[in-house]
Design a protein around this nucleic acid. Structure first.
Length: 475
RNA sequence: GCCCGGGUGGCCGAGCGGCUAGGCGGCGGGCUGCAGACCCGCUCCACAGGGGUUCAAAUCCCCUCCCGGGCUCCA
């Protein structure tokens, strides 16, 4: 299995530090507002990565932080006149609801920054002890020049970091130094007591402290969106490696591409965002997942509703094939053609796996899924029957591969319930007799009535087929 | 200004030295009592432009243009 490692810029063989155990961490949200589909894109990408690693037999521990102490939370809480942590909890709850709705279920543990204050303080103490951090009247800062590898991850030279969007704190020795503890007036706002007085942690240190307290000095895979590579991930590396002296902090760094709208980054601060809720009110979660997975995780996606609808049509096609397989007559005979079909499917399945092994190439993997569907369709177009064994193998292949991507997991609903299936078959048989006797009026009436019940009748050269619309509907 | 990514057919989107990507849409045909679904074919040298390297370039090198991201708020 190969992964493009942002740290080295190379495609590398994936081999975890400790046997088949994978310690994986992804930067989670700052819970001050609803999550948007840009976040969804990133979290879906890592959900699929974690699912796939597990599929390959790795024992993955997937850790994610929740930033619940932050300027934006404090600002919004102040405006709304509520407690900052209460506000953070409220949006955290919505975040979990969104993850659930998106089918993101691979994360083992969520770590709130506010619950790691002692660990953060310990880390700061350690960094000061080793001479990497210094105190001023406004806070504790990490000294970038003391860490010779600063800039390696994001491929930046410290001397080039001279443009600043925000005026640097004047007490810093070097404008590139970053705050790891912000001193605050105790009466003023949320904070904790520390050896350097009342205050709260800086942005980057929470991730380093959380990771180190769960995984130790090193982890296998660290992920996040590309926008975080500098300064956030660069700072995390500096903090952790300075504190432990162990390099590299993360063996693999993985970065996802951003989601844009009309070519502009979707972000809360720009106000051009579509919440996960809004997207899911219009289209099924699996369609959204498929839309994102039809691009590589590193490629930028320029969001457009019409493109999302394309993915929705694609998903419906796949479900249509599943329905056809489930509703095809079952025979005892295994024909030669059927054996050929099953061989092709096995071959395509291994191509799917090969694509996933190649830096999680989901577009390629999805293409192979469509190839399987095409093969099955071609077969059913000629023969309207399958052996029970073939049916099971086809359906389980779709389910198994779909599960890696988090799609094709919906029940085929009534189609799989045998008594109803037999009943529908009976009606179809009667209708076929009517058609043979050219009693089309009555035959059409049956078709119309069944359609109203959500059952679609299709007359083909190989016989009459049916499917239920309910299982294809997107919610 | 500096540092990263990108620019692929009607739309989306893989590929990253030679070998069919795939999807969506459109058109034509097959199958049909009709409808839909499905199948087959087509959608003109698809690779931003210009130079090079090579037997061979979308893929490697150089230059130019355009777009996005980062430069201490961000998934």
């Amino acid at each position: 299995m190969k992964v493009l490692n942002s740290r080295t810029g190379e495609i590398e063989d994936f081999s975890p530090l400790h046997g088949n155990k994978v310690y994986m961490y992804v930067c989670g949200p700052t819970t001050y507002d609803y999550s948007h589909i840009g976040h969804a894109r990133t979290y879906i990408a890592y959900d699929v990565i974690a699912r796939y690693l597990r599929y390959k037999g790795y024992n993955v521990f997937f850790l994610m932080n929740i930033t619940d102490v932050d300027d934006k939370i404090i600002d919004r809480a102040r405006r709304e006149g509520v407690d900052p942590l209460e506000l953070a909890r409220k949006f955290e709850k919505y975040f979990f609801e969104d993850l659930n709705a998106l089918g993101i279920n691979s994360i083992n543990y969520f770590a709130r920054a506010s619950e790691y204050i002692p660990e953060i303080i310990d880390l700061i103490r350690c960094l000061m002890g080793r001479g990497y951090a210094y105190e001023t009247e406004t806070g504790i800062f990490f000294s970038v020049e003391k860490f010779p590898h600063y800039g390696e991850l994001s491929k930046r030279k410290p001397e080039e970091l001279t443009v600043h969007r925000v005026t640097p704190d004047s007490t810093k020795r070097n404008p590139a130094d970053f705050a790891i503890w912000k001193k605050r007036e105790s009466s003023d706002e949320i904070g904790w007591d520390s050896p350097w007085g009342y205050g709260r942690p800086g942005w980057h240190i929470e991730d380093a402290a959380i990771i180190m307290s769960h995984f130790g000095a090193q982890l296998d895979l660290h992920g996040g969106a590309i926008e975080l590579i500098f300064p956030h991930h660069e700072a995390e590396v500096a903090l952790a490696e300075a504190a432990t002296g162990v390099r590299p902090f993360s063996k693999y760094w993985v970065h996802t591409g951003l989601l844009t709208v009309s070519g502009v980054k979707m972000s809360k601060s720009l106000g051009n965002f579509i919440t996960i809720r809004e997207a899911l009110s219009r289209v099924d979660a699996e369609a959204l997942r498929l839309y994102f997975l039809m691009s590589h995780y590193r490629s930028p996606i320029d969001f457009d509703w019409s493109k999302l609808n394309q993915a929705k049509s694609s998903l419906e096609y796949l479900y249509g094939v599943l329905e056809q397989v489930a509703n095809t007559l079952t025979t005892n005979q295994v024909t030669e053609d059927e054996k050929t079909l099953l061989e092709r499917i096995i071959n395509l399945k291994s191509q799917f796996i090969a694509a996933m092994d190649d830096d999680f190439n989901t577009p390629e993997a999805v293409a192979r899924l469509f190839d399987i569907a095409g093969e099955v369709n071609k077969f059913l177009n000629i023969q309207n029957a399958l052996s029970g064994q073939a049916k099971n193998q086809i359906l389980s292949t779709f389910r198994e591969l779909g599960k890696i991507l988090g799609i094709l997991q919906k029940e085929l609903e009534k189609a799989e319930e045998i008594p109803l299936r037999d009943l529908i078959q009976l009606i179809i048989d009667i209708r076929s007799e009517l058609r043979m006797n050219k009693q089309y009026g009555l035959a059409d009436k049956i078709r119309e009535k069944l359609k109203k019940l959500g059952i679609i009748i299709e007359d083909t050269a190989a016989g009459t087929r049916w499917k239920s619309v309910s299982s294809q509907q997107s919610g």
